[in-house]
Amino acid sequence: MTIREQPRQVLKRRASKRSDWKVALVFLLPLLVMYAIYYLYSIGFLASTSTTKVSVTFFNSIDVGWRNYAQLLTDPVFIRSMVNNILFACISIVAALTVAFFIATALATGVRAKRFFYLIFLLPALMPLSLVATIFGSMLTERTGILNQTLRAIGLGALAQPWLTQPGLAFAVVAVIFCYLIGLPIMYYTADLSALPTESLEAALLDGAGTFRIMRSIIYPMMRGTHITIILSLLLGSFRSLEVVLFSTRGGPGQSTEIVGSYIYGFATSGGPTIGFVSAVSIIVLVIALVLSIAQMVVTRPRKDMR
């Protein structure tokens, strides 16, 4: 390429890029319009409702200014719900990054009856959450639950516990249900493992690295993208895990296992003029989810030198 030819080609490339951008815009425009109507209208509607006192009919609303937000941010139950939400999410993330990773890697090594094990681990994630939580809840009632009855029947009655009425135990129960759903993280890891370049693993094997060393020092760091996807999906998903709490502990005892979803549910189904308050909660949750999503974009953005 001569020096004189260079500017012409640059111009040509720029023009082509511009035309690509226009084509992309034509295809994206209907979707953008739909998004604008669907999301922006909804968010705008929620925001305007959040400053009112109104029932589900949205008629005869009373403007209350920022009162809903003020009540919300000083409500100890809401703050506890937020904290619980994040704690449950953190516990399920730890389980996913350790147990789910280990299971996925172990199954990827070609153990016997691999499909059977996949089924075992995936099944809870494929079942309706409300069903899983209901089963857990009924198994754990102190007097009639199957767990305590079994413990008593085999002479271990001393281990029978008030699983759902002691705050600490009830919290642990909900945390276990959150962790029980590690099927999806296993699926993410399995999908990523199949695309992993094998050269590094072969090199490690040749260097005499053991299984756990390979898992810890080679595979785990290579799956950084999957870890981040799992962390964010579990964190954001925890805000939508209403069924887990509602059907197991009902937020109790004494709201010690309440999460944002169950907090909203209580007000939304009250039948009174509480929809403005519920909208304020939703806006706050939306802002938090937005912050998390932006964090995800920043964290997962490729470094400048990698572009």
Binding site: T141, E142, T144, P162, T165
Partner: peptide, 12 residues
């Protein structure tokens, strides 16, 4: 009253 009944749902 028995504390072990404090987790009974209505129907239970």
């Amino acid at each position: 009253f028995d504390k072990s009944t404090l987790d009974l749902a209505y129907s239970d």
